[in-house]
Design a protein around this nucleic acid. Sequence first.
DNA 1: CAGGCAATTGTTAGCGTTATCATTACGTGC
DNA 2: GCACGTAATGATAACGCTAACAATTGCCTG
Lengths: 343, 343
Amino acid sequence: MAGVRRGRRPAVIGDVARLSGVSNQTVSRVINERPNVREETRRRVLDAIRQLDYRPNLMARGLVRRQAHTIGVISFDSVLFGPASTLLGIGRAARSAGYGVTIATPDSSDRGSIAKATTDLASHTVAGVIIVFVSRAAATSALLSLPAGLPAVAVEASPDDSVPTVRVDQAEGARMAVEHLLGLGHSTVWHVSGPRERMDAQARVEAWRATLERAGRSAPPVVPGDWSAESGYRAGLELAERQGVTAVFAANDHMALGLLRALSERGVRVPRDVSVVGFDDIPEAGYLIPPLTTVRPDHEEVGRRSVETLLRLMDGDGRDDADDVPRVVPTLVRRLSTAPAPG
Amino acid sequence: MAGVRRGRRPAVIGDVARLSGVSNQTVSRVINERPNVREETRRRVLDAIRQLDYRPNLMARGLVRRQAHTIGVISFDSVLFGPASTLLGIGRAARSAGYGVTIATPDSSDRGSIAKATTDLASHTVAGVIIVFVSRAAATSALLSLPAGLPAVAVEASPDDSVPTVRVDQAEGARMAVEHLLGLGHSTVWHVSGPRERMDAQARVEAWRATLERAGRSAPPVVPGDWSAESGYRAGLELAERQGVTAVFAANDHMALGLLRALSERGVRVPRDVSVVGFDDIPEAGYLIPPLTTVRPDHEEVGRRSVETLLRLMDGDGRDDADDVPRVVPTLVRRLSTAPAPG
DNA sequence: CAGGCAATTGTTAGCGTTATCATTACGTGC
DNA sequence: GCACGTAATGATAACGCTAACAATTGCCTG
């Protein structure tokens, strides 16, 4: 029905104007839902639009409005569950606000590639930028290479308060995990951490330690990991050797998964001998052996909220209200990998 | 050093022209590395560009060239490992070819949302579109709502041969899995499938059956799943009840994971009683209990190749060479979830 | 019924690039 | 010294749209 083109060049605003017998400007007004167009005229124009299958050329519009109506996203680790979910949330939220989304994934986290990605986005004249899930160093590089005046929002990691930052309340999540374990009677909780330079990893470490201290427990040394199941496995082997380990909080589910495997391999039963809590609630967390008790951050919500924040920033003229974005509070999902302390 | 702007409006080509004492056109020639510019002039212009931190406005350029130098991607399930990796591959490949990437994720897979996503991309005047990982129905909707003449490449699923399609050689992967199990002496292999409407799932089912038949074995009924660990778990419970199940090929690793858990719960030992092979080689596959033997498709390569194909399509004027894109052949990763048949 | 106001529509001038077609300058060969 | 080719550069007109202002229309008021 609609769609009369036959490989012809796409209709432009002038075609619509001619067909409906009005000026370009009136067509423009109809498209942009501007007031002061007679109802009948509007109908005629809309008819013509349908008939020609006209769609406004966003580049032309962007050119005159000096803005692409597109949000740029710089993202790392976009294969991981968390960032991928955030991306999804961003995409959906942006699109429903009428914005397009352009993604740039730097090839590596060195300053050069990040700068390249950023300037790429900038020359696409994006309306604003969201920087997702990076180390503080990477976030700094990104922000530095951003043209002045381009609104930006950081997710999770930001170098300072110059940019509003949307984050999961890592501390609260870690607190939940630790208190859950302490509540089960464990005398202390070990921690397998994420990579040192990641801010979310750092926050979890700190909250883990703080919660233990607040409860008057001494914090054992951190067992370092790097998010990978493999590092969790190595951590598990190490912990299996140790005496008196009854509760472990892994900084993400993948490491928890490796951990579970190592413990099982060494004959340590979970949760009977050792309780394990993860972080992320990856889709398969409920189907590990045993089903994993874990902290569930709502990554999609983070994405949504970062778009919201960016839009607000773009509306307002300044960047005054930095950093008063409420954190996204995670929830604790109790499954079968935790149990009262043995003995 | 570079970067003299102070919150001023970004430099435009005219500023560069003025500063270097040439015309806009000459600056344009320098930017676009056109011949016939005196070496000294070029240097002067480049200096000015650096001094003003000038970057060409891609919208203006896109407008006059009638093309955004951007590749559009329509993607579903972008949180899943496979699609996410493909996206990454696409992003990298596109960027290194100088193209931007715009992503549209339909809200659901009904025709309306897909059409919306597609037309969105179209009005961004993308140079071409890649449709990632969808059911045949969804791919059809997407292609139908694509403006005629816009080059498109499908990944995995395509309605017909009208569009070049880059795919993992699902059949070869499934064949590897089944033959591996048969080679271990299992008399037949059960299959836990992905959702019926997914083409990759379908291909795996068919190849599984064909391989069994070629080996003169009868294929047991398909145990249906939906990619989720949970469905794998349910399948596992079902298979654990059955007599004579010694080998299972799960259509993806997440289901294999659920499967492993169900079997373990029912006291079925893997691989001693039952061998399990997955598909995907998700990052944690090596750390399941036991480490999962699985088929590893190179999703990033798929992404790269789809960009390549799209670029070729955009270069050439027609869409003649459809469908002669070589499939990406997966590899079998042998771990500990498979062993010789019992007894 | 003139004057004025609001609603509706049209005109003109860009937005920042590049394509296209001049124009200029500088040899080269006869 | 003159036509001619070639390299280097410039001027002008788009690309498709919207902002800003101008013009027209109809209607109301006194």
